[in-house]
Nucleic acid binder design. Structure first.
Lengths: 328, 328
DNA sequence: CTGAAAGCGCTTACAG
DNA sequence: CTGAAAGCGCTTACAG
């Protein structure tokens, strides 16, 4: 492999000078510069970023920790991150916890050892060990999706989105509204979206029926099963169901269709996420667009700002938009 | 930051010894080992992988070059790659060309400068500059999706998948079959899938009608527009349409639905990709499953084999499966 | 405008 | 079983 020393020898200069033309800093005479550039091109010399990084303590790499890469939300976010980051000549080092929490911590340390310049975590939970690991890492760090204490966080407005959606159902005349949520160890999706639902029911003094409140696991199948549970007790059927993710809403729709329910006449359905699926399923699903890609872009921009100059830790709330489909 | 020197001092040994316990190689007395391990834990010392990589010429990082991250195919593949690679303690450095070809070459060089141990390219085209850049990089390298000369390649069986699908349409009594393809500078999707279609028509001596052969750009919208073009000349309507991707097939279905066509009675539709959408759209779409995630896993395994011991360049063909939906 | 020298944090023959 | 020394390929004060 050719190194900076080889180039220096070939150009009859010191490697200091070569370094200067490579990085475009410091004074170098036009003549020498040209000579070096020519040799670099001829040899196809590629500088070693490991060496550079060891020396400068900067890697030009941003670590991203995902709960699962192959979900639409994650890939939209990564796409947004990448777009911003690539423009600034950073690359993404990708890690996927596959929903294993201990890996979040493991990967933070790993990314640290790789000297990434900053980390973006698509968080799914909050715990003390996580917080302290982040603090110890002492790196530019942003949490997307959960509000982590003492960490710059960008969150979706889960409470209001869920409340707005429930409200929309009420405005369409529904008084019996079922709910498909996820476990509450996920503060954003599990707790806030549920609270938005419950508070809205209370506000209108609507019935909160235990068997109408089910817990899924984000998957289409769990939406299907949850819907089955809601319907099981057919002495009291709801007229609408709100699932906290599109996937679960789609699963619910499928069960309803199988059982001969007409959507939205026999049962209205709503989800969250604005998935491609929500748009192309029949009837189209009423949902909430969280602008995941934009959220990724914003996160990346904030992280890069933080890398370039230390900033205060801040909290941001991402906006959202209701999309009225034919399922309501 | 604590370094190996700090640990050595604290443990009253040389850094050589610390390195030995960290990497678990060479002889170290039990007593010394324990002392060092304890100090490492107490200090939370994290070794610098940049330094290690500079010295050992291995980074533990695999570069992945994608045409677009936020497509279902890409995210499935990456998920498969990651699963295999993470188990072997490699990480993924992700780059996204956003369909800009010159970036494929740029990113190969970039990944090289970052000393990745190997590269996986989800290729979309073939050109000499690309081939020569790969050769010059002289790294373990695998192309997924296109058969690149002199490069280990894993390809989907585009020709036979397209032929089988067309064949299925013929078996369902269709004699007038339209086609929505993509540009032919993509050898796999643009050429092979089209050839599978055309050859099957020829085999059965079915009419090849120019206006029935449209070219889209992978998007749902382009499927919609292509279908519109096919229908425009309503003196001669086909009875079936085969789109080379699910997205374009979905777009076609949407236009058909708008125009009052019943699927599959007035028009049968088929795609390729086994997208989530294909399963949940109504009617469900007849398609081909390419097992993208498995392809990713296989690619990763091959690359790791290649990294661990130099191997011959080889060619692999990924298997596939027809999925008969209600759209045919 | 240019170069010699130190140093980033590791690993690895080599010697004992 | 352990350590001193060299070296991976860069950058950066410092000096001239």
């Amino acid at each position: 492999m050719t190194t900076i020393n080889d180039i220096a020898k070939m150009a009859n200069v010191s490697r200091t000078t070569v370094s200067r033309v490579l990085n475009n800093n410091g004074y170098v005479s036009e003549e020498v510069r040209k000579r070096i550039v020519k040799i670099v091109e001829e040899t196809g010399y590629i500088p070693s970023l490991s060496a550079k990084s060891l020396r400068t303590k900067k890697s030009g790499v941003i670590g991203v920790i995902l709960p699962r890469i192959n979900t639409e939300t994650a890939s939209r976010v990564v796409s947004g991150i990448n777009e911003v980051v690539a423009k600034e000549n950073f690359q993404i080092l990708l890690t996927d916890t596959e929903l294993d929490r201990s890996k979040e911590i493991e990967y933070i340390k790993l990314l640290q050892s790789r000297h990434v310049d900053g980390i973006i975590l698509l968080a799914t939970n909050i715990n003390n060990k996580l917080i302290s690991t982040i603090k110890d890492a002492n790196l530019p760090f942003i949490s997307l999706g959960q509000d982590l204490p003492d960490v710059t966080s960008i969150v979706y407005d889960d409470y209001h989105a869920a409340a707005d959606l429930t409200n929309m159902l009420v405005n369409h005349g529904h008084k019996k509204i079922a709910f498909i949520g996820v476990k509450e160890d996920d503060p954003s999706v599990g707790q806030l979206r549920k609270k938005g639902y419950l508070d809205t029911l209370s506000k209108y003094e609507l019935p909160i029926v235990e068997s109408w409140i089910q817990t899924g696991d984000f998957s289409i199948e769990s939406g299907y099963e949850s819907m089955k549970n809601i319907i099981k007790d057919n002495r009291q059927l709801p007229t609408a169901v709100f699932a906290v993710t599109d996937s679960m809403a789609i699963g619910a729709m499928e069960y309803l269709r199988e059982q001969g329910f007409k959507i939205p006449n026999d049962m209205a359905v709503a989800g969250i996420g604005a998935s491609t699926l929500s748009k192309h399923v029949t009837p189209s699903l009423t949902t909430v667009d969280y602008f995941n890609k934009e959220a990724g872009e914003k996160t990346a921009r904030l992280l890069i700002d933080q890398i370039k100059k230390k900033k205060e830790k801040e909290k941001y709330i991402q906006n959202y938009r209701l999309i009225k489909g034919d399922s309501v």
